[in-house]
Design a protein around this nucleic acid. Sequence first.
DNA 1: AAAAAGATTAAGGTTAACTTAATACAGGTT
DNA 2: AACCTGTATTAAGTTAACCTTAATCTTTTT
Lengths: 222, 222
Amino acid sequence: MNKKVLLVDDEPDIIAILKYNLEKEGFDVRTATNGKEGIAVANEFVPDIIVLDVMMPEMDGIEMCIELRSLPKLQNILIAFLTARGEDYSQIAGFDSGADDYITKPIKPRVLISRLKALLRRGGVEKVVEETTSGLRIDRNQYAVFSGDNEITLPKKEFELLALLMSKPGNIFTREIILDTVWGSDIVVGDRTIDVHIRKLREKIGDHYIKTVKGVGYKVVI
Amino acid sequence: MNKKVLLVDDEPDIIAILKYNLEKEGFDVRTATNGKEGIAVANEFVPDIIVLDVMMPEMDGIEMCIELRSLPKLQNILIAFLTARGEDYSQIAGFDSGADDYITKPIKPRVLISRLKALLRRGGVEKVVEETTSGLRIDRNQYAVFSGDNEITLPKKEFELLALLMSKPGNIFTREIILDTVWGSDIVVGDRTIDVHIRKLREKIGDHYIKTVKGVGYKVVI
DNA sequence: AAAAAGATTAAGGTTAACTTAATACAGGTT
DNA sequence: AACCTGTATTAAGTTAACCTTAATCTTTTT
């Protein structure tokens, strides 16, 4: 049974690219170009996840999100906000209109897909906790990681890097994906930066959790 | 039944050379010199594979590719991009408009042919997880192979080699195809290199999975 | 039996990743 | 504003893993 995605964005080009790529991945996709239309489609289509541009004419993403959350039928749908990088994030996040994830544009289709899958996989807000059988646990709400019983506090970048790896324990993440997701596709930092962060992580959580696959990337052992 | 190829390139000379060589190999060839024409021919001809120059006037390869993928009838056709060497590859690959292979020009006709044959043989997209009845499993997301229950981590080349063999379990892969696919048509390594990698693989996953067919190539037992 | 193809082993060179230390930067505090 | 503290990034040197080749041995084919 394919997962249903509703894309809401006022730019037809972006819609087209994302739609194509999501469908290739096996998603069932519908689209809308403004908030009003989005609500209508959501009502009839009842998607699993809605990807929502924050900035839109007529009814913007935040308004749409609030309205969606007020409809009983649509209360449990996952909502991912698309925001332009550098946009006043606090305004959106602080508002807490009920989004489950914030994704910054520009984003490569590949990366978007992996974020959406991660969201669907962990089922949104209530499953912010991810745990491996090897004993590593991450709690996105607490912004904390646990190795066995003891809590380890991580700075932002280190946390985000580990959170990415933990979003799919066992899966490999290439350096490219890591840079795109943790740093953003328009920020340019060297490859060594990743190494150093991995090093710091290993220092704090223990060596055995993160595995290097040379020439490919990193993964968290299950 | 001959395989049907559609060549789309704005340079008549290149078209002529490739057409001649492909026909000599038994392919059924049609051509087009721009994207619009390409779509039209594709619609009527319904080729097995389309070879598409990225840089073209009017409608470029990427646009054409996206449009092709939007037509139900043509969704499963294989698409190979021709790109000039040194061209900003990331722009193309990152865009992920749905190509099945990227081939850099200049390319020798016989190399192109072997690439196309490889593509047609494995039917383009590979499954993420592939498993044989003999108990060998490969997971491209995890970048891991399993022999029965235990996970075996492989370095890049070994993994890619096994991944190729596992893309069609039971099928034979010639040394030429292996070199083209795993090493790339422009990299020249000796034949012994393949042997050594096969040896390492057998050492790690067990001798019985990979079978040598002398004078032909290797295959994974089903 | 000779020739060809593949298997095996060890060794070298290359590249990617690790490590350490130094610098730059941000946030908070005096 | 100056200072402190912790974090992020870069640079440079080191280490380790991997890839490839060469040389030798074994098997298969003619």
